[in-house]
Nucleic acid binder design. Structure first.
Lengths: 230, 230
DNA sequence: GTCTATAAGAAGATAGAC
DNA sequence: GTCTATCTTCTTATAGAC
């Protein structure tokens, strides 16, 4: 049972009901409730993982009766899958495309800043992903093995080209991608730890700017590159 | 309810029973069973978090009946706390001490390599810690606010001294600690993702050596330092 | 479409036999 | 010390009233 196959199932369930084209937009409530449930489920699953999350808690967060949640998604797995549909779509849309003809410093800086920005805007998605991986990626294994593996191979190839052309220091491209992933996601996944250590109640925009500046400076210099003045 | 107070409670429960000094060592079975349970619980909690873990599963992993587990620890929280007793003890024992009189390059290299080595030797402990933080650190909040905060302040102070003496580039010391934490722990916490992306069945020693070499090279260069020939 | 009631099973925890 | 039996509560999921 792959993410892809389940994704299709959930899309079918999502398809608008035909022959009911009324003026007040059919499925308006449906849409709104689905969104509430998705938002609530993201919080619950991000915090407690698949097994630790309960439908009751999701329902309470969504301010809906539990059976209403099960009416829309029929079971716990479907809710979980639906979340990854959304997250992977966002991931693929935003994800930095680096090309051989780009300037290495500028491309890597954009990559780092985009990832930090994602940690800022979608911390729950980041934590949900982290939970799924820590738990052994039971749902995303196929995706990692195929799409994500291909993505890394492609990006690593571009970085290797830059190295071969002497445009940056000789560093392992795949390890570099891991470094950028880990260091940027950290701000979302370990938010509580960072806030406690820095003695703050919550993050502000400038904290993320500062983090992005720091990571850009250190990683680019670490790759033998000078930060661009973007 | 702090970690410290519960830690004391678990130590009391651990105290040897008096007036039973027999030749075959009293509590031998007890000790062995406790260890089995701790090892099993580490796996279960690391994979599923506090709420997702079940006593039944811990018992099965330990190959003991469920009530035997509850006999030794009386409830789920006690098992969880006992894990952090062990982990924090290890953490404090191994944790890299950097001092102002040290060479920055050598000290940071040791820090990075020690952390990678910990990811290799104790991946479950790393994942357990990650789970606890992602879930909002309900058990470790006090520890983060006090001990860990102090530790970071101390280490950051030393790094700042090096910077002020012009012995390394001007980088935010606290962010540097976060960077080293995140990038090194990543090899334990996101093990599955790395293995899938690199198309491997499992890690080998040389993968960790390679990762440590990479991180040392990039981060040291990123801090304006040359790697030492250690 | 929505929600109450409830089945069926699993969870944490305890009592007490051995 | 060990383990079976059991209590209570909670969990997923379904049936069916409205």
């Amino acid at each position: 049972m792959t993410l892809q196959s389940e994704a299709k199932l959930s899309q079918i369930a999502e398809a608008p009901v035909k022959g009911r084209t009324r003026r007040y937009r059919p499925g308006r409530i449906r849409e709104r409730n689905r969104e509430r449930i998705i938002a609530a489920a993201e919080q619950e699953f991000a915090q407690h993982g698949f097994r630790g999350a309960t439908i009751q808690n999701i329902a309470e967060r969504a301010e809906l009766p539990k059976s209403n949640v099960l009416y829309y998604f029929s079971n716990k797995k479907r809710i979980y899958y639906a979340l990854f549909d959304d997250i992977m779509a966002r991931w693929n849309a935003v994800f930095s495309e680096i090309r051989p003809e780009d300037d290495p410093a500028q491309a890597l800086e954009t990559f780092i800043r985009t990832k930090v920005e994602m940690s800022r805007r979608f911390p729950l998605a980041s934590r949900l992903f982290a939970q799924e991986i820590i738990q052994g990626a039971p749902f995303l294994k196929d995706h990692l093995r195929t799409s994500m593996r291909e993505w890394v191979r492609g990006r690593a190839g571009v970085i290797q080209q830059w190295i071969d052309e002497g445009r940056m220091a000789q560093v392992d491209p795949v390890q570099l991608i891991f470094l950028i992933w880990s260091s940027t996601q950290h701000y979302a996944d370990f938010q509580v730890q960072i806030l406690m250590v820095e003695n703050k109640a919550e993050y502000e925009q400038r904290d993320f700017d500062h983090a992005a500046d720091f990571l850009t400076a250190v990683i680019l210099r670490g790759c033998g590159l000078e930060p661009t003045k973007q």
